[in-house]
Write a protein that binds this DNA or RNA. Structure first.
Lengths: 204, 204
DNA sequence: CGCCGCTTTGAGGAGGTTCAAACACAGTGG
DNA sequence: CCACTGTGTTTGAACCTCCTCAAAGCGGCG
């Protein structure tokens, strides 16, 4: 039922306007999701890694509304949505699964809304790191060390900050002894303090 | 299958932690949806009116994550979700309908993310008004005049601004000749200019 | 009338942005 | 091998938007 697909770093898997036909389960790699506004401005709305699902936007309209770009070489599984719907009609667990996926997506968007609506730059960056670390830990990786796959500009766009502010905030958190930062390599030194700062963002 | 329910102004229809069992279709009235963060801060995440659906959050976790409060006397239809799921298995149109509802909810949250992430106060307030007006128009009401059901504080919370900023922005838009504002009564004078300012937020 | 909730307006201050310059690093071609 | 270029990051200084604190106005209701 599902077909593997390779996506190279920098390539675009989905574009706004593409008709909604398949979901993609990420087997490996790292993606960013970018939305464009009517006035031309762009904004990163999410980062997806192995185990996450791509393409859920557009389930309502039948058209994708965002572009999805690989930030490193990746492999995905294409799952035709009509087949998933058909399965859902016969197997309630599949129906539950789809609803669960949609629920998670909505929960993520909600948590970003809260972050953008009421957190300071320092809180946003902390919450962002904690969220990434938690998701990496769920996948069996370190909970205190990570390599950022995205640029400062991408992080800033996602967090509603300018790239300079993101950079300054990393420096500040490092100066305060919460992190060690070297370009895209980040190590958490004081996890508790980081939690204290960035608490508020929910899971995946 | 569905049961009517009256909710008086100020009453809470759903609370965070309530188990997810039923969706509510609004027959009349006006609601706000409020989310709380781990750190105690609160934020309005949406306003719902007649024809909108309440309770879609919690479809993933089985628990509601927000409270829903009536901003005026209202009447809603309770629809047990297990029955909707059962129907969806037998009738593809019902399945489509559920997916459509979820898609709309996600689209709304996305549009608010974009608003919060990259628009100025003036743009946010304009986009907010345009969105409300559009939804009122879809319901057969005036596209140029409305009575706000929510306070400046609620608007501010929703738009990621302080209530004073919302008030000032209304005054500014009025001074520029785009609006006439008298407390909660708003009339659009220059719709084009308002569109020019607030474009970027998508539908419902 | 007098209180209370909501709104408006002002003045001052803080957090983020903007503009600019310098640095690090990888890839390229001479 | 090394200058050369391009992209991404860091840091500084000045500015601007929005926030904070404060006071006053409006309107409804007991």
């Amino acid at each position: 039922m599902s077909q593997r697909l390779r996506v190279r770093k920098g390539e675009t898997l989905l574009r706004p306007g593409d008709s909604f036909r398949t979901l993609f389960a990420i087997r490996s790699g790292f993606f960013k999701q970018v939305h464009s506004m009517a006035n031309g401005r762009e904004q990163v709305t999410g980062f997806q890694m192995a185990g996450d699902t791509l393409g859920l936007d557009g389930i309502g309209s039948g058209q994708h509304s965002s572009s999805v770009v690989a930030l490193e070489d990746a492999e995905v599984c294409a799952m035709p949505f009509v087949q998933m719907e058909a399965l859902a009609r016969e197997m309630p667990p599949m129906q539950k699964h789809i609803h669960h996926l949609l629920g998670r997506e909505m929960a993520h968007e909600r948590s970003v809304m809260l972050l953008l609506g009421s957190m300071s730059a320092e809180e946003r960056v902390s919450a962002f790191l904690l969220n990434l670390l938690q998701r990496l830990q769920q996948r069996g990786l370190s909970a205190s060390e990570l390599v950022l796959r995205m640029s400062r500009a991408d992080i800033g766009s996602y967090l509603g900050l300018k790239l300079e502010t993101v950079s300054r905030t990393f420096s500040k958190l490092a100066a305060e002894g919460l992190l060690e930062v070297d370009k895209r390599h980040v190590r958490v030194v004081d996890n508790e303090a980081l939690q204290r700062t960035g608490r508020g963002l929910a899971a995946a």
